[in-house]
């Protein structure tokens, strides 16, 4: 790569074409997070009990299982976008790449476990 100023090196290369994608999706998921979290907080406040039977009964109802899957998808995507910015702000070079990979593994793994668990409860036989 030729030397020169930072602007000189990128001039003429065209835009990355995805500059606002991250920013916009973070805002859109902020909105869906808000609605889904309000649902979750009201659901928690309305629980008659927090024992196993109540929790299982609650999550086996489609009216709870579906918003819970949406909540995991929306929040974990928002979380991935947010953690990415934090890592990019504080880490450089190899550490940045390594942490971004680890962060993605973490988010996708716990999202898979969460969604699998909700579906297992929802599709499983009544306990």
């Amino acid at each position: 790569m030729r030397s020169g100023t930072a602007i000189g090196r990128v001039r003429g290369l065209g835009s990355a074409k995805s500059g606002t994608h991250h920013w916009l999706n973070q805002r859109l998921t902020a909105g869906s997070n808000f609605l889904l979290v309000v649902w979750l907080l009201i659901s928690i406040l309305r629980q008659p009990s927090f024992d196993y039977a109540s929790m299982h009964l609650w999550l086996s109802n489609p009216w709870a299982a579906i918003p819970m899957v949406l909540l995991v998808a929306s929040i974990f995507y928002h979380m991935r976008l947010g953690l990415q910015v934090v890592i990019e702000d504080y880490e450089q070079d190899q550490n940045r790449v390594a942490l971004l990979v680890v962060m993605n593994l973490f988010v996708f793994t716990i999202a898979a476990v969460a969604i699998f668990s909700i579906l297992k409860i929802a599709f499983g036989a009544a306990a």
Binding site: M68, L83, V107, I118, K120, A127
Partner: peptide, 30 residues
């Protein structure tokens, strides 16, 4: 945000997995 993304997310997943795994797992969580 970082706190919820780590501690909060891990606890939500543990809660869901514990309810999915059965009464004994949920008792351990609780």
């Amino acid at each position: 945000g970082t706190g919820m993304a780590t501690v909060g997310a891990a606890l939500l997943v543990w809660f869901l997995a514990a309810v999915a795994a059965g009464p004994e797992s949920y008792a351990t969580f609780r």
